[in-house]
């Protein structure tokens, strides 16, 4: 029999107090948690609702940074002009995220905390150097997103901790692309995000590539980045990614696709993400 409790938190402090030393779980949008409850993945704990905490719901701009509250929904990301202009990869990820109704409740914090290898916001945030700000009742810390994920479903978050917000750097040349079996309601087979800067000669002077659903966690693709650096992003370069990309990834066979297929198409997705970043950003 299910043995859950419930508390609503209206402030961050209240939420942290409820989490502290308790057998408690955070619920924001609920799009992950409700299926977890149904399947028995979550049992017998107190559910702490944080969706009404106003301090977790904001998108702010500094000179070179954007800050996003953990409870910002995917729909809010999609509609945000700041995100569209300064974090195009995240805008693009939001546009292909699940479906419009799920986007209305799913939150960016929840998408990261669930730590799915296929979490669609993660690669986009990774190429924008996202830093995750985490609080517990007695401490606060920040972790680069690249160090946040530990394994499928596992992050550095402790049970008494809460993501409060995410900080990302502005970069107009970024892009995100998703390969799924459907145009909507798809869990990704492969996702790729890129952030690319060219010098005056059209040579890649800095480059960040992140990938989803091809490793136990969303990852930065270091080999691919090194391969691309100081090269022209022309067709020859972009068609020769396969070796480097395959050093970055460790895909598995799952219900959506085989590891071999993921190996075949990941370089293609990287190529397209780079083209999006360079030529098709909004």
């Amino acid at each position: 029999m299910k043995e859950f409790g419930y508390k609503n938190a209206t402030t961050i402090t209240e939420a942290l107090t409820l989490l502290d030393g308790q057998n408690a779980r955070v619920v924001a949008g609920g799009t992950n948690v409700l299926p977890y409850i149904r399947s028995g993945k979550y049992t017998d704990c107190r559910l702490i609702n944080i969706r009404d905490i106003k301090d977790l719901n904001f998108i702010k701009e500094d000179s070179d940074r954007i800050t996003i509250g953990a409870c910002v929904t995917i729909s809010q990301l999609k509609k945000s002009k700041l995100i569209l202009e300064f974090v195009p990869a995240l805008h693009q990820a939001a546009c292909v995220f699940a479906d419009p109704t799920i986007c209305n409740t799913a939150t960016v914090g929840g998408n990261l905390a669930s730590a799915s290898p296929a979490a669609d916001t993660a690669p986009a945030l990774l190429v924008h150097d996202a830093i995750v700000f985490i609080k517990s009742l007695n401490s606060s810390r920040s972790v680069p997103l690249s160090e946040f994920f530990k394994a499928p479903g596992t992050t550095v978050l402790q049970r008494n901790e809460l993501i409060t917000h995410i900080e990302i750097s502005k970069q107009k040349n970024s892009g995100f692309i998703k390969l799924g079996m459907r145009k909507s309601m798809s869990i990704s087979i492969v996702t790729a995000a890129s952030s690319v800067t060219l010098n005056d000669a059209g040579i890649i002077s800095s480059c960040k590539i992140a990938l989803g659903a091809v490793a136990p966690t969303p990852i930065r693709a270091a080999h691919t980045e090194r391969f691309l650096l100081s090269k022209k992003p022309d067709d020859d370069t972009l068609s020769a990614l396969i070796k480097a990309t395959n050093l970055d990834i460790s895909p598995i066979d799952d219900i959506r696709a085989s590891a071999d297929y993921r190996r075949e198409v990941t370089p293609v997705m990287v190529k397209r993400a780079i083209k999006l970043a360079l030529y098709e950003h909004c």
Partner: peptide, 8 residues
């Protein structure tokens, strides 16, 4: 519009 099965 939300899917009520995924809302607590």
């Amino acid at each position: 519009a939300v899917k009520s099965c995924t809302v607590l």
